[in-house]
Design a protein around this nucleic acid. Structure first.
Lengths: 399, 399
DNA sequence: CAGGTTAAATCACGTCTCGAACTAAGTCAT
DNA sequence: ATGACTTAGTTCGAGACGTGATTTAACCTG
């Protein structure tokens, strides 16, 4: 039931094409001999399919490897210039559009400011549409598709509908609305998921195939990657790590519940807890990035304010650690990757303590097989990750 | 990388065979026309493959459906008597072996007592081996394989090695040891996972393809089913629901950590908490099932002991509810199924309160799409679930 | 420049699925 | 009864694919 397609010989060919293409895409220039090894296909088939790919212009020769007494191997690589893709990061404060070649090398970028500083459903669609038109106009190769990372839960039914509590989107039919402005294939997914995808392809998750990516920003989310693909629950809302309950009758969370992880570890929560501790508005809660920086700086100083900052940060580390331990115990990933702007800001100083707490609270066996690392791509790779979506489809389809 | 096989035309045939077989197995007697619809194959291919299956004796005709003016459809079904499988439940107090036909109808069963009441690695292998030999001797059809559900984390490296803290197994090489006694294919998995598998095939999960199965017994575990198949972490130790941390610096858990769910919701923990509350050994902690029953009975009575029982049970419901809310938020399953002997004992009285707590603590969207139900197969379906493993392999391989 | 070595292409063959044509097995109206 | 009609299932030829064996290509060594 799970495996669609693959009924007749043409599907078989497509699958083998995809296998070769995928291998070439991810594992650099390879010779036909390498492909035989990697895919298990016969040399005849590899020759045959490669000829197809060369004809189609998807693959080009890339020099030869020096001979060891015989005919030299000719290296092959995917021609990254034969197609382009577009990735869009719909953030809470701005919309960023980027155009990439097939190898996800950036070719152009474009920011669309969000009018009034809030993601008004009415204005976001024309904003995306006009930026998209501009990027597509500049493309020098056919555009495979458009990936869009959005702040909220995405439901495909079958057109993507977005539930974004933080931006006030309630069942916002983004895909249907965008359909009126473009005929390009659209791939819409949660921003945390696309960021995780980017880390899996090019960042801290390159060498594993199951990982949990934690996104610490104003709030806290996660994205679970299992067997190389994003794990989605039955309705694509899996990964709400921030609303794991870690304290019965704990702090009030903006979701309405109490004791959520997000009530302790998101930037908003950290700042609020610090303000409560020092009993004054010494930091500007509206500028979360600045506020978090000043709390981190304060923690380096002596005095009562420094004590308060250290206490708040230590509890943050503890809560993050417990949240990670829960993930390790329950899902047993090969790697936990911490990302998001707040995560990247906090992790350098908090990581040792976080690791300690995880060790204390996780079971030994899964803990010993998990590494906890920082994201490698910064917090701005949402568009890059979104752009992986059409590429992934392209590789799966083998054309 | 994920999809092995399916390279050449023979693999294609095998895949299509498997598709038909699977459809016939799970969706009852079907005509060739139904199969054409269900699988998308051409009528010629269905005819062809069905002829193969009939020749091989895996499928037999099962009457005809009445005509509506044309030639009547001939129904086909899997011949469940053409193979048998064996399922084994390695429990903490006894080993149960059962022999089934291919349709998982029980044909024979056998209990092997555990000497000394503890699962001594030395004696468990001969115990299984002798019981297995006896069951196999009685088989009237070839035995496809042996599924074994064990109490612990199973690692395949590549032979199954079991880590069972509760029974004192440390990297116990069960598969390698059993290999010396039988040549039958062995399928070893965690008991909670096999029980969940049984529920997915025949019980409360029949109509969904993603579910989380909670096993409440002496302790608490879980098994996650995603897209119809057990979700395993990178090392097959996913599902340690009982060791989700729900209370910082909470009760001490037998795993050494503090605040684990299991420290509140397993039978052992419930009994301990009740004993603390009434400050006396009014229940026999050695007989957990009896003790739990008497606590449930006491909760019906007035008086201080009844108050204590009610308080303990209410907190149990709250903690279970929070544990479920965490699962709902994080994994967004279609269904949460509560099983295990303690779960089945507690649920009738606690389920309303549990549902209430989940509703309070889970996010609205995933909660509204999840149902929380009781397991339908009782607590003794571990062997049945284990027996599904060789059958699943059989159906996948298409022969 | 001949002999050796390795890479890649070609060929003949067997297998697969598919659409179309065909046969089988019923119903229904006359 | 009988022939027209309907639906189920089979057979057949065509087209496509992968494979192993064979052949051709490209390079090295001495």
């Amino acid at each position: 039931m799970t495996d669609e397609g693959r009924r007749n010989v043409r599907d078989l060919r497509r699958a083998n094409r995809a296998r070769l293409l995928r291998q070439l895409y991810f594992h650099g220039p390879l010779s036909r001999q390498d492909l035989i090894q990697a895919t298990g296909l016969s040399s005849a088939s590899v020759s045959n399919v490669v000829a197809d790919l060369l004809d189609a212009g998807l693959v080009v020769e890339a020099g030869a490897v020096e001979s060891e007494g015989g005919r030299p191997r000719i290296l092959l690589r995917v021609d990254t210039s034969c197609f382009e893709v577009i990735g869009i990061d719909v953030g809470e404060t701005r919309i960023r559009l980027e155009r990439f070649d097939l190898g996800l090398g950036e070719l152009a970028a474009l920011d669309v400011p969000v009018v009034g500083g809030s993601l008004d459903p009415e204005s976001v669609v024309p904003g995306i549409a006009s930026g998209l038109a501009e990027l597509v106009a500049g493309a020098e190769a056919p555009v495979l598709g458009v990936g869009i990372g959005v702040p909220g839960i995405v439901q495909h039914q079958p057109f993507a509908v977005i539930h974004g509590q933080t931006v006030g989107w309630d069942a916002f039919p983004l895909e249907e609305l965008l359909r009126k402005h473009t005929a390009l294939p659209l791939f819409i997914d949660n921003g945390a998921t696309t960021l995780a995808q980017a880390e899996m392809w090019f960042g801290a998750g390159r060498d594993v195939d199951s990982a949990v990516f934690l996104l610490l920003g104003s709030g806290a989310g996660a994205s679970v990657i299992a067997d190389g693909a994003p794990f989605r629950g039955s309705t694509t809302s899996a990964g709400e790590w921030g609303h794991l309950n870690v304290q019965y009758q704990g702090r009030l969370c903006r979701c309405g519940s109490r004791g959520c992880l997000e009530a302790y570890v998101g930037a908003e929560a950290i700042i609020a807890r610090y303000q409560e501790a020092v009993d004054a508005a010494v930091v500007d809660a509206a500028d979360e990035e600045g506020a978090l920086r000043s709390i981190l700086a304060e923690a380096q100083q002596a005095g009562p304010a420094g004590d308060a900052a250290r206490a708040v940060l230590d509890e943050t580390a503890v809560r993050i650690g417990i949240g990670i331990a829960n993930v390790v115990n329950f899902l047993n990933p090969q790697r936990v990757i911490i990302g998001g702007w707040a995560g990247l800001a906090l992790a350098p100083s908090l990581l040792p303590r976080i690791r300690e707490v995880v060790r204390e609270h996780a079971l030994h066996l899964p803990y010993s097989l998990t590494s906890i690392d920082l994201g490698a791509l910064g917090a701005d790779a949402v568009a890059l990750g979104a752009a992986t979506l059409p590429v992934a489809r392209f590789l799966e389809a083998g054309a």
